[in-house]
């Protein structure tokens, strides 16, 4: 491997951006593909599949066997609202290898007693979010039920192109949310990205069950191609 490729790969990884090294194992010929450039690559569909799986692997191509060294940033989960659902969501997400951060300006909710061993920020989203460098490898969940807290966070998540954005609330609540977002000038394409009501429809009732349905939906968004989304 050329040192320049290795250097570029390490730089992309440090910046939380996806990258792939394509190696022809018979000849040693290699190329470096940034995640953002995958759409321009001749192996586009294959590379997209590998990025979704987040795994390296050997692939047969018309030009021979190539090994794909795939690096995808570890996913993060940001939860707006230190509520009962979040108490179940945090440990489940941790098991699934997400780096979890919970944000809620209400200090009675965002208390370490309620959230042991979780990164907790008792600030308004406008203050808490900018330093977090929210990116497309972030799943974003809004569960406060309070527009004062949820709405600014939702705008931020849409701007940062999070791979999953889910918001708690009935269809009626969500309808009102959409009206508020439209009033801010956010387009229908963007608004269609919001998963609401949040979670897969598995008949969840208790907060931990709702947490399971949310993590199921996030997993599907992360791993399934667009045409197979539930």
């Amino acid at each position: 491997m050329n040192i320049e490729i290795l250097k570029a790969l390490n730089e992309e990884r440090a910046a939380r951006r996806a990258a792939i090294v394509v190696t022809d194992t018979a000849t040693g010929i290699q190329r470096f593909v940034k995640g953002a450039d995958v759409a321009k690559d001749p192996l586009r569909e294959t590379l997209e599949k590998y990025l979704r799986m987040g795994k390296s692997g050997m692939e047969e191509t018309p030009q021979g066997n190539v090994f794909l060294t795939v690096h995808v940033p570890p996913p993060r989960l940001i939860v707006i609202g230190a509520v009962h659902i979040s108490q179940a969501l945090a440990p489940i997400a941790k098991l699934l290898d997400y780096d979890v951060t919970i944000i809620d300006p209400r200090t009675a909710f965002a208390s370490p007693e309620r959230f042991p061993n979780v990164k907790l920020i008792a600030e308004w989203p406008e203050v808490a979010l900018p330093p977090l460098n929210v990116d497309k490898y972030t799943a974003f969940v809004l569960v406060t039920h309070d527009p004062k807290i949820d709405d600014p966070a939702l705008v931020h998540a849409l701007e940062r192109d999070c791979f999953y954005i889910g918001a708690l609330g009935s269809r009626k609540t969500h309808g009102r949310r959409l009206e508020r977002m439209k009033a801010l000038g956010i387009g229908d394409n963007q608004l269609a990205r919001i998963h609401a009501p949040i979670g897969l429809n598995i008949g969840a009732i208790s907060p931990p069950e709702i947490a399971v349905s949310i993590m199921g939906e996030i997993t599907a968004r992360l791993r399934l191609p667009p045409e197979k989304q539930p």
Partner: peptide
């Protein structure tokens, strides 16, 4: 740099 590129059966370390 050595990289596991393929495995068959029960391999101790994953591809990559």
């Amino acid at each position: 740099l050595a990289t596991v590129v393929q495995t068959w059966g029960s391999a101790p370390r994953p591809v990559g």
